[in-house]
Amino acid sequence: MLRAPKFELATPTSLGEAIALLAEAGPSGMVIAGGTDLMPNLKHELFTPSLVVSLARIPELHGIRRATDGSLVIGAMSSLESIAENALVREQAPALAQAASLIAGPQLRSMGTLGGNVLLDTRCQWYNQTYFWREALGFCLKKDGSKYHVVEGGAKCVAAASNDSAPALMTLDAELGFESAAGRRSVRIEEFWLADGIFNKRHAQGEILVELTIPKTPAGHRGAYGKLRERGSIDFPLLGVAARLDVDDQGTVSRADLVVTALAARPHRVTKAGELLVGTRPGDPQGELAAEFRARLAELARLAHKQCHPLENIPGDAAWRKAMVPVYVRRTFEAAARRAGPVHHL
């Protein structure tokens, strides 16, 4: 069987203990949460840590609660299954619940954590392979090599952000709370990403993601997530679309947001969403959506199509992924408007 390289495992029972272990280990230490991303990556020898620190036994990292200001606070070790099923999350952050429900398959959702999905390594067909395969390739820019393979003559790693939760969390203005030897740090998820496939996050060595905070969403908040993938289960996204529509009590859109992912190294916000949709009235969620809303949405879908340039980074037909951007943008917003979703081919 494909085997993980040797390492030592620590199972601290407090955050302080974990931070101290990581600080001591330095670059040779890694964190394991659910293990669903790290373990395959270890077996592929993409990482060869000498110490792996498990977060499983740290109580502070667990639990989903509503804070006094109404915001939603989610422990980073909350399982994806619990995110998908939790009533608070479904009510306040439907796009996140929907995204979590479509990640991988049932077992991986019961093992995988929200924190782990946020911190998921970028993915690429030239990278997520065994050591043997990568050796036969001559390795790549992201790991062990200097060659670029996605586009001949390219120079920059374009491994794709493949975490379904990220775009949903961006539309929800989530804040990530980290703790490290240097103390506590909070970062808006919008500012967390880097456009670099090699390492696409502002995440320092030794920092532990403790919790995610989602500010209270208004009563008329509607959100949806759309996921393009080949199978109805297990697969990573070929395209992920998170849509947000806040509708005031007059039935008018007061806020709209669109983030797409799985195309490039970081999730991409289509900034014109607000400009185009705010002020429109989607119409009756049960009946026909309003013509003007649909026209604006079509314009937004066209714009998103123009802005997205998927490459052959992850397996899957890049031209088809591009062609699906407007379709999924439109369908995901329609689902949001109807308080429906997720948008998925099944």
Binding site: M1, L9, I32, G35, M39, P40, S54, R57, L108, M111
Partner: peptide, 30 residues
């Protein structure tokens, strides 16, 4: 499949299905 793609190694951990090929043995304690 070696790495969490097929489900043949599924076991129950506290009645929840998990992939034992991606679960470190030490983390099954308790």
């Amino acid at each position: 499949c070696d790495k969490g793609d097929c489900g043949a190694c599924t076991v129950l951990l506290d009645k929840k299905p998990v992939l034992s090929c991606l679960t470190l043995a030490a983390l099954a304690e308790g």
